[in-house]
Computed example of a mutant assay.
Amino acid sequence: MVDQQAELCTELVSVRDFIRYGASEFNRAGLYFGHGTDNAWDEAVQLVCAAISLTGFDNPAILDARLTHSEKLAVLDYFARRVQQRLPAAYITRHARFCGLDFYVDERVLVPRSPIAELIEQGFAPWLTEQPDYVLDLCTGSGCIGIACAYQFPDALVALSDISADALAVAERNIDEHDLAHRVQAVQSDLFAGLDGQCFDLIVSNPPYVDDEDLADMPAEYQAEPEIGLGSGLDGLDFTRRLLAEAPDYLNDGGLLVVEVGNSAAALADAFPLLPFTWVEFARGGHGVFVLTREQLVAG
């Protein structure tokens, strides 16, 4: 291994060389991509940039820049971990982007990737017609959805709730890194139990929604993520059933509920035929996100 590493450090010189090598290694290893990139080349770019402390290649000349020996070793270490451990790249770099913002992530939380980002950037239009005063990010994980909402709605108070103390430690770190502790709070809660009867104008949730069969069949990269953030029973709806039953009591009049259920969307629609789900269509891809008002929840 040491001899091979030394040989690679001699043969590979430029940023471009390492990206090409990494992409080839990832393809040869049959890696799965779905945590921020969808192909081997972009995955290699992400890891090389992180290893040499660059945010991107605004100047194309960077591609032909030579790496120092220590930088080469750092890149090769990232590549080896990606191939051998099948870790999502974000767990290796401890960094993910969501809604154009930077977030710390590690194995205690899911890697941010929800299509809800597109809704946040649009201010949840056309369903949300007024700026919310109180926002809840339910099952917050890293806190990325709630923190992005705090940027979108600069006057709102935002609660980030999760049942996992480990996840909340990550969310609290991100609150601090974004300097939002004055109006964003992390709360440990099993659904609404720890929220002290608070009511919200907007509840956004990317809860666990993977059914048992899909969970067992997931690629290794997804198996590296915390199961508590993924699996939700036989049909993937254990959590969402509870959420729909309890949400009306925690939404203000005119309040909006936005929930991602992914591939469990069809099962949800079948289970609640009287609820008038609006399924969001995304310009940048993604599916399985519904919108309901408080009034629709109560009527249904």
Rank of each mutant, 00 (worst) to 15 (best):
A150W: 00
Q152Y: 04
Q152E: 14
P154C: 05
D155P: 08
D155L: 12
V158L: 00
A159S: 10
A159D: 15
L160E: 08
L160Q: 07
L160M: 02
S161W: 08
I163L: 15
S164Q: 04
S164R: 06
S164T: 05
S164V: 11
A165N: 04
A165M: 11
A165C: 12
A165G: 13
D166V: 07
D166F: 03
A167N: 05
L168S: 11
L168T: 12
A171M: 04
E172M: 08
N174E: 00
N174Q: 10
I175H: 08
I175L: 08
I175C: 05
E177L: 05
D179R: 14
L180F: 09
L180C: 06
H182T: 11
V184M: 03
V184G: 00
Q185S: 14
Q185M: 12
V187N: 08
Q188H: 07
Q188T: 13
L191I: 15
L191S: 07
F192T: 00
A193F: 02
A193W: 02
A193E: 13
A193R: 14
G194E: 08
L195V: 07
D196S: 07
G197Y: 08
C199Q: 15
C199T: 15
D201L: 03
D201T: 04
L202Y: 01
L202P: 09
L202E: 05
S205Y: 06
S205N: 03
S205E: 03
P207W: 14
V210L: 03
D212H: 14
D212T: 13
D212Y: 12
E213T: 11
D214Y: 06
L215G: 12
A216G: 13
M218W: 06
P219W: 09
P219G: 06
A220P: 14
E221D: 14
Q223D: 09
Q223K: 15
E225Y: 08
I228Q: 13
I228M: 13
I228F: 03
G229Y: 07
G229T: 01
S232N: 08
L234R: 15
D235G: 03
D235M: 01
G236W: 06
G236E: 00
D238M: 05
D238S: 04
F239P: 04
T240L: 03
T240F: 03
R242L: 15
R242N: 07
A245G: 02
A245D: 02
E246W: 02
A247P: 06
P248M: 07
P248R: 11
D249A: 15
N252T: 11
N252W: 01
D253K: 08
G254F: 10
G254T: 15
G254C: 12
L256D: 04
L256W: 11
L257E: 09
L257I: 13
L257F: 05
L257S: 05
V258L: 00
V259D: 11
V259C: 14
V259I: 12
E260R: 13
E260Q: 11
G262C: 10
S264C: 07
A265W: 06
A265F: 09
A265P: 03
A266H: 13
A267Q: 12
A269I: 15
A269Q: 14
D270A: 15
D270W: 07
A271F: 03
A271N: 01
A271E: 00
F272R: 01
F272L: 13
P273F: 09
P273M: 09
